[in-house]
Design a protein around this nucleic acid. Structure first.
Lengths: 209, 209
DNA sequence: CTCCGCGCTGATTCCTGAATCAACGGCGCG
DNA sequence: CGCGCCGTTGATTCAGGAATCAGCGCGGAG
């Protein structure tokens, strides 16, 4: 097939390229079929690669899907953490976090769909502790809120953990609106407006008292 | 096995009882393993019923899972719709909707987990149009918000669809906090407080302007 | 008491998909 | 120029789960 030409005519694809290729294909299939519904066959086909090669790079299905998750989530986590750590008023940090999430969505809606919409709730979870990773972000955010309360930037009577979950809930559902086609995902202005509304509504709800 | 005695000693279980039994067992397994991960074997075992009986009542796996979904969702939908239809200020209706969701959670956390956390996003969906059902509620709520805007109960610049998704996002994540064990699900007071915070934060965010 | 029918059973069949493995071929090195 | 290494291939094996079906037994009718 014509596609393979790239690894002959051009310089031979490096190992990392192939691995990456499979990983990206897996994200694609994973996002379409879900954790258990994702078949190696499909991943291989999607990546234009032999069935066996998937097993060359990954011990088994679980490890592959785990990698998909870990890779994507790690990137997201780092960005969110950076926002959490910023030395600014809580409202600025919240704005930052929402910005990170929406930006990620703009860049790769499918990956976000996988991470935000499947992670932490997929009951079909393998051995993977994805829920744990999700909790990690929630708890990090919760700590941020708690500190903000101590600085008097946030009403003290709020439960920080709930503040965190509600923030991500708001983000998630804001994005879901597009993923599910309730709003037009190609309408850049609509996405921007959604981001705005999510931030403002959340902050107003959490701040005013 | 001793368990079967109930259909001998007592009056023979009616058809509906058995069907119901299987349905409930399916909810249980479904909530643990997810759509694709749910095996008929497990459902039968959970229901203390022969493997074949599942196929006596349901054409195939898809139809079973579809029934699980349809049944549970229909019930929830009806309650939510009732709240939506109430002739009251928008804040009262929102309170009602959140109340319905939390009450349902109190009654049957597992079923809620299935419905709220899997419905509408599970990419592993079979032929089922579950996303459609989810959209239905969102859109019904969105209409409610739009009407409220026209009555001046809500700022006009808000996108009603986003108001709706954010409401359910807030509810969902409020409940997720317990499902994921971030807050103690046996602590009734904590649940009540969570409900309170979800409602108040949401309303404040959406109302004040 | 006997026979029938209906709900129910679970071993069996068939098939899908995960994981293995023996072999291929291009590339670099001697 | 030939040899061996290593990334790659895809047919094959095997486990497990969906769906089938030939009958079983209890309750009721005659």
């Amino acid at each position: 097939m014509a596609v393979k030409a790239k690894k002959q005519g051009v310089r031979r694809a490096s190992v990392d390229d192939r691995r990456e290729l499979i990983l990206r294909a897996a994200v694609e299939v994973f996002s379409r079929k879900g954790y258990t519904g994702c078949r190696i066959q499909d991943v291989a086909k999607e990546a234009q690669v032999a069935y066996g090669l998937v097993y060359h790079y990954f011990k088994n299905k679980d490890e592959l899907l785990e990698s998909v998750f870990a890779t994507g989530w790690k990137g997201f986590l780092k960005l969110v953490q950076a926002e959490i750590d910023r030395e600014e008023h809580i409202t600025a940090r919240v704005r930052g976090i929402v910005g990170v999430a929406f930006e990620a969505y703009r860049r790769d809606p499918r990956a976000v769909k996988v991470l935000i919409l499947e992670v932490g709730r997929s009951p079909a979870g393998g051995s993977v502790n994805r829920g744990g990773a999700f909790s990690q972000v929630i708890l990090a955010a919760a700590n941020m809120f708690k500190a903000a309360q101590q600085r008097g930037e946030l009403p003290a009577q709020l439960e920080p953990v709930l503040c965190a979950t509600m923030l991500f809930g708001a983000i998630e559902m804001g994005l879901t609106t597009f993923v599910m086609g309730l709003l037009d995902k190609r309408d850049e202005a609509a996405i921007a407006r959604a981001q705005e509304q999510v931030v403002e509504t959340y902050l107003r709800g959490v701040t005013a008292r």
